[in-house]
Design a protein around this nucleic acid. Structure first.
Lengths: 220, 220
DNA sequence: CGAACATTCAATCTATCAATTGAATATCGG
DNA sequence: CCGATATTCAATTGATAGATTGAATGTTCG
């Protein structure tokens, strides 16, 4: 006979798969796009063997699937909702855990110092885009941009920011985005562009959150 | 300096707190209402000492808070969104883990055998209530009902079902609800009432989910 | 077919988690 | 203040997770 506790134990199995920083890093990378083990390992700063083990655990928990493509195993998230799950976890943690708030404000300290404005919410961004008021800037590396991006976004990888300023409009406000709320790329971009006199703000989330919310994306 | 990994490690801390069946049982009980350690321990079928330890962990993860009331410590969820988090975890697990699906269908096997209809979604239920088409039946114990319930619900604890049939309207369809999707009370109630010739269906969620969705509740 | 490559498996060691026990602390009623 | 009640703390033991190593598997390419 099945008891309620069996169900909760199985649910706990899934939660436990989320209970490790390295695995969360792997999931964050997978939220960008599917990828091979080597890519994932280097994104999460793990050895290949170790990354593989963690990926097995995620697989057992039903969070990722793998399929072979030639010599490589391509991993992907099983479910778009996993991005929502991570987002909600983040919200709950930020609201209720002092340590979390401390770390976040530390990561964003430079923003505050430079007088950067509030980040733009997806609701605001959507409205501003419809009115044609803002230009979208994707500062992720080119391969991630190509795997999917917000419609109409210009891609200038952070490393080439100064070299590619010509692609940016000077007359509009710019909204920069990258991988997600904890990704440093857009923070950095906003700071540097502000120094150069651009009107620019950060999108508070990133590409995966936008997509998981069911908003339109350009995909290959 | 703060790295992104520090943030993920801290997030993992919260996820790890969810990674244990007993702690999930405690959280499910807390989703009904705040409660003292002894109540929680018996709801989760744990010794007092063990329950206390698990509650400490939940506290460290920022998921619950405790306040003293006389001799007792009253625990409560820190955040309504924790119910949403558990709900989303459940959805992801049910969709992607075969084992989970197996357990759920096993738990609901009797429903299928008795030809019970699909459960009612909260959207449907809300609409039917507005049109006055259905009567709401809360089959939880009286103390949980008193700590909060759906507006207009009649409370008949499952144990007194046959004794209190007089409280139920015979002319309307009845929707029964209890603690949540995995709670057996409303399943049992539906089966027994159907045998007696009532038109009755189950609400697919329970009181906590209804409340966490921001829908109206009657509270003391 | 066999070498090179990408990944997984098996075995090991250490660190952390879960349950239990008994002592310690805080509050209440008399 | 004292004894009863509710809970937490500290210490112990067995179980499980994480990292590392090297061998094993499956795939491509010459």
């Amino acid at each position: 006979m099945t008891s309620q506790q069996d169900l909760l134990d199985t649910l706990a199995l899934v939660a436990r798969a989320l209970g490790n920083g390295h695995r969360l890093a792997l999931l964050e990378r997978l939220a960008q796009s599917s990828a091979a083990v080597e890519t994932l390992a280097s994104a999460a700063d793990l050895s290949i063997g170790n990354a593989s083990q963690h990926l097995q655990q995620l697989r057992r928990a039903g969070l990722v699937t793998a399929s072979r493509s030639g010599k490589q195993m391509i991993y992907r998230l099983t479910d778009e909702r996993i991005v929502n799950l991570l987002g909600l976890l983040r919200q709950v943690a930020e609201t209720n855990l002092a340590e979390m708030e401390r770390l976040v404000s530390q990561l964003f300290a430079e923003d505050d110092a430079s007088g950067a404005l509030e980040a733009v919410s997806s609701r605001e961004l959507l409205a501003a885009l419809e009115r044609g008021e803002v230009a979208l800037l994707d500062v992720r590396p080119a391969d991630e941009y190509q795997a999917g991006h917000l419609p109409g976004a210009i891609n200038i990888p952070l490393k080439q920011l100064e070299a590619m300023l010509g692609d940016l409009p000077r007359d509009k406000e710019i909204v920069a985005y990258c991988r997600g709320p904890y990704c440093a790329l857009s923070h950095e971009a906003v700071q540097r562009l502000r120094q150069l006199g651009y009107r620019v703000r950060r999108f508070e989330d990133g590409f995966p959150e936008w997509k998981a919310a069911g908003l339109p994306v350009s995909q290959p």
